[in-house]
Design a protein around this nucleic acid. Structure first.
Lengths: 186, 186
DNA sequence: AATGTCATGTAAGGTGTTACATGATTTG
DNA sequence: CAAATCATGTAACACCTTACATGACATT
């Protein structure tokens, strides 16, 4: 049940409404860590409130409810954060494609890897730009650390993709450009 | 619907039974890309067979059915592989904890980051060892590329975690060791 | 006044996990 | 022959997405 802990964690940083949290997922957490829609967020916030882990800190216009963490909520969040699991949920559609690269022929695999390289380059640049805007403070308290992680991740992706393309080209050349899809010269 | 493409992709490498595929998820794909249990795999294989994307290539003892890809299955797999989505599914319980680091105090955050460092070190070493066993050929055709990706990923995680610990310690020292949980000096 | 954004909710259906269930074959 | 592993399946429940639904407030 990572959704509830994601919500608790965001509220630990600062009080927010379900609407705010949905936007935070879209803008920040959702690309790399976890995502949820408002249809999942609102019921979960109500359950958390029923369980006494969060509380309505403020009511605003249009029925807006700003939630804050309770002591119990913070305790539960910390417990979960420090309970580092042997194997946790990891799902990544992009990484999945890498694992299955063998299904493509040389040209196809190359084009896929080039998109990985391009994506890595773009995203790394975006994060670098974001960080250089000194007046802008991060969305979450330790956003700086996370942004650095993201930047390093995408730089790694770029470097790796370039390396992988080289490998592919070498194998292709060695096989005389006749290598059928699925065959590998380990 | 990434599960079906994960299955198609694994079968593109070599024919396998539902049992084999479940083991492949556990041993390889599941840690980084995608995971599924046998209770999800068997029904999906039957649906894929009904749809003509896979076919029973061989029947063995204990009702074992070895599936292979059909032409239609390979076509669908390639279509999906090259249809690089703007935003795909990414879920990562470990990365989520990083985003929420602000909920912890200095000592707690430090201990979490140390575990990230340790995990990065161990996993990178494992992959390095695996690759140095020259006689051992990879599980999937392009397993070599994926292993390299994994190794670079975990090395990055290790380096980043060490850097993040330094940052944390510096902030802690600057705040005179009195920094309450949740406050950051951006 | 119309349009856009803010704000919350429910319902239906698809995806994924845990638990239950069964039996064949292999190994010690 | 006992235990482990191989091999497939179903059922109940939890989680997540898409679509439907409503209304308040802000902007033009």
């Amino acid at each position: 049940m990572s959704l509830r802990h994601a919500l608790l964690g965001m509220l630990a940083d600062h009080p927010a409404s379900g609407y705010d949290l949905a936007q935070l997922f879209d803008a920040s957490l959702g690309q790399h860590a976890w995502h949820a829609r408002h249809s999942q967020i609102y019921p979960e916030l109500n359950r958390l409130a029923d369980g006494g882990l969060v509380t309505v800190a403020e009511e605003g216009p249009r029925g807006r409810r700003t939630y804050g963490l309770t002591e119990a909520g913070l305790t539960e969040l910390r417990r979960w954060m420090l309970d580092f699991p042997e194997s946790g949920v990891v799902r990544n559609e992009y990484a999945l494609r890498l694992f299955l690269l063998g299904a493509l022929n040389h040209a196809e695999a190359r084009s896929l890897l080039e998109r990985y390289a391009q994506q890595g380059e773009e995203q790394a640049r975006q994060l670098r730009d974001l960080r250089s805007e000194r007046d802008q403070q991060p969305v979450l308290a330790f956003g700086r650390l996370v942004a650095e992680f993201g930047q390093r991740y995408f730089e790694m992706q770029l470097d790796w993709a370039r390396w992988a393309i080289e490998q592919l080209d070498q194998e292709h050349a060695a096989a005389g450009g006749k290598q059928p899809p699925g065959s590998s010269s380990g």
